[in-house]
Simulated scan of single mutants.
Amino acid sequence: MGRFLVSGGFPLKRGHRLVRAREAIMILVTGGSGHLGANLVRRLLADGHEIRVLIRPTKRHGRALAGLSVQRAVGDLRDPDAVDAAVKGCERVYHCAARISTTARNHREIHAVNVLGTRNVLQAAGRHGVRRVVATGSFSATGTTPGGPSTERDLFCPGDNDTPYTRSKVQMEHECYKAAAQGLEVVIAVSTAIIGPHDYGPSRMGRVLLDQAQGRLLAYIPGGFEFVSVSDLVQGHLLAMEHGRSGHKYLLSTEFRTVDQMMELYTQVTGQPVPRLRMPAGAMAALARLADGPRALLAPGREARFTPAAVRFLRSERRADISLSREVLHYRPTDIAAAVEEAYRCFVERGLVERRRATIPTARTKGQGVCGR
Rank of each mutant, 00 (worst) to 15 (best):
H61Q: 04
G159C: 08
Y220T: 00
G8V: 08
N106T: 14
V170H: 10
P273A: 10
G148L: 07
I188E: 03
L122R: 01
I195H: 01
R78I: 10
R108P: 01
L77V: 07
A285K: 14
F256A: 04
P300A: 11
Q268A: 05
D162P: 01
A358H: 12
V187A: 02
K88G: 01
T267D: 02
H243P: 06
L155H: 04
C90F: 09
G351W: 00
G351Y: 03
L287W: 03
P149Q: 09
S69I: 00
T258Y: 11
V83A: 03
V134E: 14
G48V: 06
C176N: 02
N161E: 05
V170T: 13
A363Q: 09
R312E: 14
T359P: 01
E173R: 15
S325L: 04
L298A: 11
Y220S: 03
L116I: 12
G48T: 13
E342Q: 08
K178S: 07
D232N: 11
A286E: 06
L36Q: 04
Y94D: 06
A299E: 05
T362M: 05
V259N: 07
G293W: 13
K169C: 13
M172W: 07
R153V: 11
G301V: 02
S316M: 15
S33R: 14
I221N: 04
D84E: 09
Q235G: 05
S101H: 05
A358C: 15
A180E: 02
H174F: 08
D84S: 14
G143P: 00
T166Y: 04
A189G: 02
A38C: 15
A213K: 00
F256P: 03
A310D: 04
G129I: 03
N39A: 15
D81N: 13
N120V: 09
L218S: 08
